[in-house]
């Protein structure tokens, strides 16, 4: 029975517009691969403590599925030889998959959204090895990855201004309806 003292509350990340998903759907994924590989290699070198927190889970295969985009990522953090690739759909046999809107996944990685809060609101969902997914979440949260610097290196100051503008634009998009949209 619900406690009479309870109060209902709200608060969710935005979801990318469907026209954007439709617009990028026909694009080939192959050109993404070099950029993804470079980004992961930079993260792996710049944040070695990630592997300390991942422990045994560093050898596992993770699926990262932005549910408002028509593609997903398979991540293998393996120390010294990390691999990431873009896929149309997550394959079978992954150890763990994390699904949620792009803004939620990025916000969680940047430390602006709390993973448990997104889970409670049904915005984010985990399948497979929950311990591996938790270890990945906690390792990334602690690492405080500077994505602007990772993505654009020496252009980071310009990138920061651009990404701040982009974030403002994304935040102005409508939030998920009641946080109940999931795939």
């Amino acid at each position: 029975m619900r406690d009479p003292e309870t109060t209902e509350l709200q608060g969710l990340p935005p979801r990318l517009p469907q026209w954007l998903a439709r617009a990028v759907a026909p694009l080939p994924l192959a050109p993404l691969q070099p950029a993804l590989a470079l980004m992961l290699a930079r993260i792996s070198r710049a944040y070695p403590e990630l592997y300390d927190r991942l422990g045994e889970h560093a050898e596992k295969r993770f699926g990262i599925d932005p549910t408002d985009l028509p593609f997903a990522f398979v991540l293998e953090p393996k120390p010294g030889r990390p691999v990431v690739r873009a896929v149309r759909e997550l394959p079978e046999g992954l150890d763990a998959s994390i699904r949620g809107p792009l803004a939620g996944l990025i916000g969680m990685a940047e430390g602006t959204f709390d993973g448990d809060a997104l889970f409670f609101s049904r915005v984010l969902w985990v399948e497979g090895d929950v311990a591996a997914a938790l270890a990945l979440r906690n390792a990334i949260d602690d690492a405080r990855i500077d994505f602007d610097n990772i993505l654009l290196g020496g252009f980071a100051p310009l990138a920061t201004r651009l990404s701040d503008a982009l974030r403002k634009r994304v935040r102005s998009l409508p939030a998920l309806p009641g946080g109940r949209a999931w795939n």
């Binding site: 406690d3 309870t6 109060t7 509350l9 709200q10 608060g11 969710l12 809060a117 409670f120």
Partner: peptide, 20 residues
């Protein structure tokens, strides 16, 4: 009246628990 932390709460719901 509350901490205003709805988005952080389990079930997005708050309670004063046993205090009352």
């Amino acid at each position: 009246s509350s901490a205003g932390l709805a988005a952080m709460a389990e079930g997005q719901t708050g309670t004063v628990g046993a205090y009352r």
